[in-house]
């Protein structure tokens, strides 16, 4: 490791090798073993680290932990999708559940076929007042094609 890289290393992470990226610890140690300048830089960084650590935060107390546990566990948990039955989040296509719908569909088809085959409906059913598609397309425009 070059001295400029070591300087950057401690400028970022401080003097404690435990905070250095693991891949650079060995090379930094090798540099420290041969460079007095590196040792001086490390000592300066140690002093600055100690100053920064003057702002240590006290640990959280048990009372806070107990309050958090009590308040959190009083609330319901969200349900996992993995725990929800498939039929609750989608369509169940199993035959066992679909047979009533299939039976109804088949009955409707048979009735429709019989009605059509035997001509049971009156002759004028659905006849008479038919709507011409051209009337729909022409609605709202005059004979010249301009809007009314």
């Amino acid at each position: 490791m070059m001295i400029w890289r070591f300087r950057r290393l401690i400028a970022a992470y401080g003097a404690d090798p435990a905070r250095w990226p693991p891949g650079q610890r060995g090379r930094a140690a090798a540099l420290l073993a041969r460079s007095a300048r590196a040792c001086t830089l490390l000592a300066e960084a140690q002093a600055f680290d100690a100053l920064l650590m003057a702002d240590a935060k006290p640990p959280a107390d048990e009372q806070l932990a107990a309050a958090i546990i009590a308040r959190s566990t009083a609330r319901p948990q969200e349900r996992s999708l993995a725990a929800v039955p498939a039929r609750a989040i989608g369509v169940d296509w199993s035959l066992a559940r679909l047979w009533p719908q299939a039976l109804g569909l088949a009955a409707a088809a048979v009735i429709g076929f019989v009605v059509g085959w035997t001509d049971l409906l009156p002759a004028d059913f659905g006849g008479g007042d038919t709507i011409d598609l051209a009337d729909i397309l022409d609605a709202g425009i005059d004979d010249n094609g301009s809007p009314l």
Partner: peptide
């Protein structure tokens, strides 16, 4: 900070079932 920790751990509790879903 204590309120934030409380909010964060509440999320841990309520969302923990999703931890198994791998999504």
């Amino acid at each position: 900070a204590e309120e934030i920790a409380q909010e964060a751990f509440l999320r841990v509790w309520t969302k923990a079932p999703h931890w198994r879903s791998a999504e």
